[in-house]
Write a protein that binds this DNA or RNA. Sequence first.
DNA 1: AAACGTTTTAAACGTATGTTTGAAACACTT
DNA 2: AAGTGTTTCAAACATACGTTTAAAACGTTT
Lengths: 213, 213
Amino acid sequence: MAQKETARSILDAAEELFSERGFAETSLRNITTKADVNLAAVNYHFGSKKALIQAVFARFLTPFVAELDTALNDWTKNKDADPTDLMALLRLLSDTALRSGAERPERLRIFMRLLGLAYSQGQGHLRRFIRVEYGQVFRRYSELLSEATPELSHEDRFWRFHFMLGATMFTLNGVDSLSAMAEHDLGKATTTPDVIEQLLPFLASGLQSPVGS
Amino acid sequence: MAQKETARSILDAAEELFSERGFAETSLRNITTKADVNLAAVNYHFGSKKALIQAVFARFLTPFVAELDTALNDWTKNKDADPTDLMALLRLLSDTALRSGAERPERLRIFMRLLGLAYSQGQGHLRRFIRVEYGQVFRRYSELLSEATPELSHEDRFWRFHFMLGATMFTLNGVDSLSAMAEHDLGKATTTPDVIEQLLPFLASGLQSPVGS
DNA sequence: AAACGTTTTAAACGTATGTTTGAAACACTT
DNA sequence: AAGTGTTTCAAACATACGTTTAAAACGTTT
């Protein structure tokens, strides 16, 4: 039953190389060399490079989305909770992301880099795959976010959601180089959870900024 | 003197194709076909694909940085202006960007997409090129931003600057698809200046969020 | 109009990519 | 231990890429 081992080490190598250099810039030969398996193993186990890319995302997203789903169930069932507590709702998402897979936050960094690449590199097939496969949970979270910001108009909310998403994606996408810069400039080590702790109040304030006209 | 025409049409085709599909995903054959010039023209006029990529950025950044520089001179010389007027300082940057090249805001969309790609795709040579060639003006703007947020600690400011940058890059990077979504959801057309008008108060509020802990 | 430097052209070069092949090695049941 | 289905392997495949070449076309100066 060593075939599972081959597929796993391919996924390990692929997610690391993809996150470092992008999809187009990472060849199957790079991956199979790093994974120490035969070149043909990718096509045998996954079918194609596109399918491998999707499999890398699926390994991240499937458990994360499952955990987020149960966390959202708890949130809506818990009638004591304040549905307009925006910070709590943001923290629910970040906690789930940090805890997901019960692995080191190291993993979240790679995950966010991959997600950023999925949006910035062509990879239309990937965006489609993610939307079709995992879109429902994110729509659900988005609805709860709407309930937590009742003072916003549809339009303001739409745009500010995306501003939030952008600040988050960009930051966690480059969290390794940003942390290095921060340590150099401030002489202080910063972990991913630290960065998120800085990020959340920024997002909440931005979302709840007084609406002008 | 038709050789300038060839180089220009190559740059036109390259900046459009790069912004749509990324650098690695756009071949010189794609570019020269779209520009209706011979394949060898790229290497003849620019030397290599890397040099072409840098030339595309230079054509955007050189006039923009020049305009920003004079705008910053006016800002610091104008002693009536309030150096802590954050919104005014943000608007100075966005106005300069929108006006740069005296062309349609259409161009800004492409520019931001390219900038986003420069950060997300490998392209270490590009980041180096941009930093070495244009870094000084951005450092200058960053110092003025510091003066405009005297209540922030070094650390808070460092992180919030990057949150701002992220929200801006991500939003303007995908402003075309976001505007399409907005029009579909809200039945209301949104231009790039409209989006920026929504973005600035979000950024200012986030930056000035009360510091906890 | 002749000569010269510049630009364009079609073709080829070498290299790297994703994928396929068919035989060998393996794991497991009978 | 023979037989069977699965997995690995080295090799080759076809294709696409960035770059180079050498000759042709062009434009300008003499």
